[in-house]
Design a protein around this nucleic acid. Structure first.
Lengths: 151, 151
DNA sequence: TTACAATATTTGTATATACAAATAAAAAAG
DNA sequence: CTTTTTTATTTGTATATACAAATATTGTAA
């Protein structure tokens, strides 16, 4: 469906407005679908994002600010996200001995197990979501989004 | 910048993952920029969205459910958004006399004035944001996003 | 070495999001 | 005409987002 129909617009939209609405709307649909996958695991999209970053550290602890700069939504409140993961025992957190301002966050085995369980479901979902476009179109979309952002 | 660099990914991302992250990240950047424009007006993006929908009604009142189905983020809580706009006297709300389950929401002159003041700023921002792409590329991006969504 | 600046994180507050449950009115069914 | 179902909205709760202010530690300069 075209974006004008999705939002039942009563006025004509110019191309810049249409593009922006299209990106906003598509993202919203995407995260809604993704949240459905995460729901049985009692994880929010941002909590999942933190877990993925920690797994990517391959055993090295990550500071709060390292997590923050790697997040998709960089204005998220990392402290409170880590708090929630801590309660579920998916991460550990300790004060860094060399610099007591810093916090070392590590994913636990339980956290790794949850991610391993989610991996095939997430991959299937990502493949299904992008199935309407062929490889050329996906690369084109990727390129256009990056060009769009880079100013 | 490429999406892998924006999120400083330590692992290789396949094309579907990259596209999805790219959309999520681009949307996030977009709404951050847009919120900056709205901030002096003490409006959130969603509150602005509601005002735009009400102006599009051209004098006809809109019910809560009409507003909801026209919003970009359809899971927003329309009641509470309208509450905030009511406090700022940007809208009025009255029970519909024909069907007392329904609420008639109307934009006030003050609300229209705020939008009129914002219009040129929003248009300039939208033009500037999309300036990196020419018309053909914008139409391509639009088409790819709609094809991506339609499954 | 005391004062000041920079860095890393936490806390507070307001708003927004997601979703379930509650409420109320209208429409349909018996 | 009462009961049930549907529709429209509101309220409650938990989490997330945005951003400013507070706190604590480290680094630097007079």
């Amino acid at each position: 469906m075209k974006i004008e129909d999705e939002i039942k617009s009563t006025v004509v939209l110019d191309l810049p407005k249409k593009i922006i609405l299209n990106i906003m709307y598509t993202q919203h649909i995407l995260s809604e679908k993704f949240n459905e996958i995460l729901k049985p695991y009692d994880l929010s999209g941002e909590q999942y994002n933190v877990l993925r970053i920690l797994r990517g550290q391959k055993g090295n602890p990550a500071n709060m600010c390292v997590i923050q700069e790697r997040m998709v939504a960089k204005t998220s409140n990392t402290t409170r996200l880590v708090d929630k993961l801590l309660l579920k025992e998916l991460v550990t957190r300790n004060v860094c001995p060399e610099n007591r301002r810093k916090i070392e966050v590590l994913i636990t085995q339980k956290g790794l197990d949850v991610l391993a369980d989610l991996d095939p479901k997430v991959n299937d979902h990502e493949k299904a979501t992008t199935a309407k476009l062929d490889t050329t179109e996906l690369e084109q979309l990727n390129h256009l989004l990056e060009k769009f952002r880079n100013q």
